[in-house]
Each structure stands twice: as C-alpha cells, then as structure tokens.
C-alpha cells in the first residue's frame, strides 16, 4: 500500500517539479521573440525636433532599431557601441532609436552630452514598443531590406554581435 502511494505520489509530483524547474529558469527577456523571422511592425514616429521618421514595409537599407532610455544604465554602456556602429555602417545601415518611457528634456540633455547615433524617436503610449514585444530597455531589433526582423538582442549590444548580424545582411 505504502509503496503504491509513494509511486503514485512521485508520478504526480515529479512532472510538476520538473515543469516548475524549467519554467522558473526562464528570464522573460531571454525568451525567443515570436517576431524574429516575421515582418517588422511598420511605424511613423517623430523625433524631438518634430521630424517624422518612418519604417516602411521594405526599407532601402537594413535598419537597426534600438529601444533605449536615459534612466537605463545598460543603455549608457551600449551608447558608444551604437555610436561606433552608426559611423562604421553610415550609408549602408540605418540606425533608429526609439526612446522608451522617458521625458523629452532628459533625452535632449542625454544626446547633447553623449552624442547621437541616430534619431531619438518618441513613442506615444509605448505603442510601438508593445508591438515589438519590448520588455525593457535596451532592446535591439535588426530589420532586413525585405522588412523581416532578423534578430532581437536583449541587453547591451556588443560590437561583435553588431558586426556578425550586419555582416550577414550587407
């Protein structure tokens, strides 16, 4: 009797424990984006000076879209990487920054102090961030010329990652 109860209990509890162990191991931001390999949501957003930038269905050049914020420390770390990347791939790749939940004044100060690697676009109501499934800043998406999201990077972008991804597209 006790052995039967033990076996039944183990059969019930073990799969649950395994399931929970696997589930709790996940960092939500590390979960693969369902958007990779699919068409990038298109948008029109304005920068701080009112210029409107558009991501069309088929961009002329590959596009790096980076969601960032002035309050985000990793964004400060990756800023020089994006500055160097934008310089290196100028004319071959477009870099678009979408500011995630931030204030225009702080964005102006940040850009004035550290320089800009691309336009800082405002995203009213985080509509575009939600459409891209953004969990937090920084997150980077690379869009190919056929409008497909080829990569999503959570956290700080490294020069190596940028080179590897963009090298495959150019």
């Amino acid at each position: 009797m006790n052995r039967v109860a033990l076996i039944l209990g183990a059969l019930l509890v073990l799969p649950l424990l395994i399931f929970l162990a696997i589930s709790f191991r996940y960092d939500p931001r590390a979960i693969d984006s369902p958007l990779v390999g699919k068409a990038a949501p298109t948008f029109s957003l304005a920068d701080l000076d009112g210029h409107v930038y558009q991501l069309p269905e088929s961009p002329a050049r590959p596009v790096v879209i980076n969601f960032w914020a002035t309050w985000c420390q990793p964004c400060i770390v990756e800023h020089p990487v994006l500055l160097a990347g934008a310089r290196r791939y100028a004319g071959r790749v477009d870099f678009l920054g979408i500011v995630y939940q931030d204030k225009p004044q702080l964005i102006r100060e940040f850009v004035a102090q550290r320089g800009a690697w691309g336009p800082s676009l405002l995203d009213p109501g985080s509509e575009v961030a939600i459409a891209y499934g953004v969990y937090g800043a920084p997150e980077t998406f690379v869009v190919s010329t056929d409008g497909t999201i080829v990569e999503r990077i959570t956290g700080v972008v490294t020069p190596q990652a940028l080179e590897q991804i963009l090298g495959g597209l150019l």
Binding site: P41, L45, P104, L122, P124
Partner: peptide, 19 residues
C-alpha cells in the same frame, strides 16, 4: 490618445504604428 511628450512638442498623433 495624447502623449505628454508629444504635447510638449506641440505634436499631435496620428503617429505611431502604421501596421
């Protein structure tokens, strides 16, 4: 829907998602 950041710049939607 308005966004304070856009209000501050005197901009009005529709801006945002085109898809």
């Amino acid at each position: 829907a308005q966004d304070p950041a856009y209000d501050a710049l005197g901009l009005r939607p529709p801006l945002g998602l085109d898809s």
